[in-house]
């Protein structure tokens, strides 16, 4: 599904990614953990096609295609989805118009007809119900005035409607109350499928009680320091990150 090899990148003359290697197979869920500022969001944004970063080396294959050669909109249409750590507010652009445009762009790229307006409304209402979002969000601007938790739910709502092959969720669990965490986790789990993969960026092992990962990676200093199974997350919870850095230096 996704194969990142020795990816290096910098911004404003500063090296941020220092040789990332990561392989995610179809059907797998990977968790990416690591200290603040280690470059997790940078990696996520680069995968989604953000142009502010200079890629200095390495490669990324998405279903065997050179992902880095595609503009962001084509990556999305090919089935990649980024749940933003900080979803931007877009006042004046209706939340549902955006979703409809997004879905139609994807269908068009796949040679499918545009979604019928009535069917779309039914679909989105059903997904909103699943995400426990009130229908008042139908008429609002994209993330406009949403609370932190509402923004995260909205990201997952978009993911459920777009049904991506690979979802990268950047701290989608941050700022959620316990109930919302369950709702968001249910959303992610509902997409779980042998043909779909998820990369969860998170600081909290709690999330992994709800969404059980196949692999856990520790990201530090712009690269993956250590990988393991779910038990690695528990160990991090107990011991923090320092022991890893020390063991590496040693």
């Amino acid at each position: 599904m996704l194969k990142i090899s020795n990816l290096t990148a910098r911004v404003a003359g500063k090296n941020i990614l220092n040789g990332v290697d990561l392989e995610v197979n179809a059907g797998e869920i990977h968790a990416l953990m690591g200290p603040n500022g280690s470059g997790k969001s940078t990696l996520a944004q680069i995968l989604a096609g953000r142009e502010d970063y200079e890629i200095t080396g390495g490669s990324v294959l998405f279903e065997g295609r050179d992902l880095l050669a595609l503009p962001p909109e084509e990556r999305a249409r090919a089935g990649l989805f980024l749940g933003f750590q900080y979803p931007v507010e877009i006042p004046g652009v209706n939340n549902v118009y955006l979703l409809k445009a997004a879905l139609n762009a994807k269908r068009k790229a796949a040679g499918e007809p545009e979604v019928d307006a009535y069917e779309f409304l039914a679909l989105i209402k059903q997904k909103m119900k699943f995400m426990q979002m009130s229908e008042s969000f139908l008429t609002r601007g994209v993330n406009e005035g949403f609370s932190g938790g509402e923004k995260k739910r909205n990201e997952v709502l978009q993911m459920l409607v777009l049904e991506p092959k690979l979802a990268i969720l950047d701290e989608t669990d941050s700022g959620l109350d316990i109930d919302a965490l369950k709702v968001v986790s249910n959303g992610v789990n509902s997409l779980r499928d042998p043909h779909r993969s998820v990369v969860l960026v998170t600081h909290y092992q709690r999330l992994l009680d709800y969404i059980v990962p196949d692999r856990v990676h520790v990201f530090s200093g712009g690269r993956i320091l250590k990988s393991g199974d779910k038990s690695l997350a528990l160990e991090l919870e107990k011991r923090g990150y320092d022991w890893l850095q020390e063991s590496r230096v040693a």
Partner: peptide, 14 residues
């Protein structure tokens, strides 16, 4: 640019 990127990342053309 953040708003623009957000929409591109959802598949809308520029």
């Amino acid at each position: 640019p953040d708003m623009l990127f957000y929409m591109l990342s959802r598949g809308l053309d520029r």
